[in-house]
Nucleic acid binder design. Structure first.
Length: 215
DNA sequence: TAGTCCCC
DNA sequence: GGCA
């Protein structure tokens, strides 16, 4: 029996999603407005853009990056690049408020040494989604992944080591932080198509910050 | 080629 | 599960 069925879960709640995977409810809600301001500053230097997959499809999610390198895709494949291919300049530096949040959330989830060197910033508009996939373009699979949700809510799917493994769906709201690593570091995950809405701070969109040690 | 953050 |  779920005591919080149909109600908002308590702030600071913690859910074990899988071996090595933890959902920290509302962990970033206190600094959410500051994070949104910082995202706007990064986007002014490295604009959000919808990239093309190796199969030739344009992704529905718009992306930019900050940190020592950025995740990019084009017809040639997925990779981390030190320069923004759209501007030829290095990606904006990782802001302190980003690095601290990721480090602290990882430590709370059981990964005390985590020091991210890259942050992928995803912007979801209504209808945007992320197909079930693995994060395996990083050099370091020993480090976890820290994923921060801001703005509109979304449904996160977390599966298993194989594409055909069953998935569990988690509603993610503004300020929620998901950390996965260890045994589940390479497990399949994705995001359902975003439903339209209006968030008081972010407006009609969802942002996702994904911190990794990639280099 | 091998792999696939896409599509159905 | 198979594209292009």
């Amino acid at each position: 029996m779920d005591l919080f069925d149909g109600l908002e879960p308590p702030q600071g709640g913690r859910e074990q999603m899988a071996p090595g995977a933890v959902l920290l409810r509302g962990r970033a809600s206190g600094c959410g407005a500051a994070l949104l301001d910082v995202i706007a500053g990064i986007a002014a230097e490295a604009p959000f853009r919808r990239m093309v997959t190796p199969g030739g499809f344009t992704m529905s999610v718009a992306m930019t990056n900050c940190g020592a390198a950025g995740w990019v895709t084009d017809r040639r494949g997925y990779r981390y690049a030190a320069q923004d291919p759209q501007t030829g300049r290095p990606w904006p530096a990782m802001p302190d408020v980003f690095a601290r949040l990721a480090q602290e959330a990882a430590a709370e989830a059981g990964y005390p040494g985590f020091r991210p060197d890259v942050c992928l910033i995803n912007r979801y508009e209504p209808g945007a989604k992320m197909a079930l996939h693995q994060d395996k373009d990083e050099r370091d699979f020993a480090s976890p992944i820290v994923s921060v949700s801001l703005g509109l809510p979304a449904v996160f799917r977390f599966g298993g080591a194989r594409r055909a493994d069953p998935v569990v769906k988690y509603p993610l709201r503004h300020g929620d932080v998901v950390v996965w690593g260890g045994e589940s570091r390479l497990w399949f995950h994705g995001i359902d198509a975003l439903k339209p809405g209006a968030h008081p701070l972010a407006g009609p969109v969802r942002f996702n910050l994904t911190f990794r040690k990639a280099l």
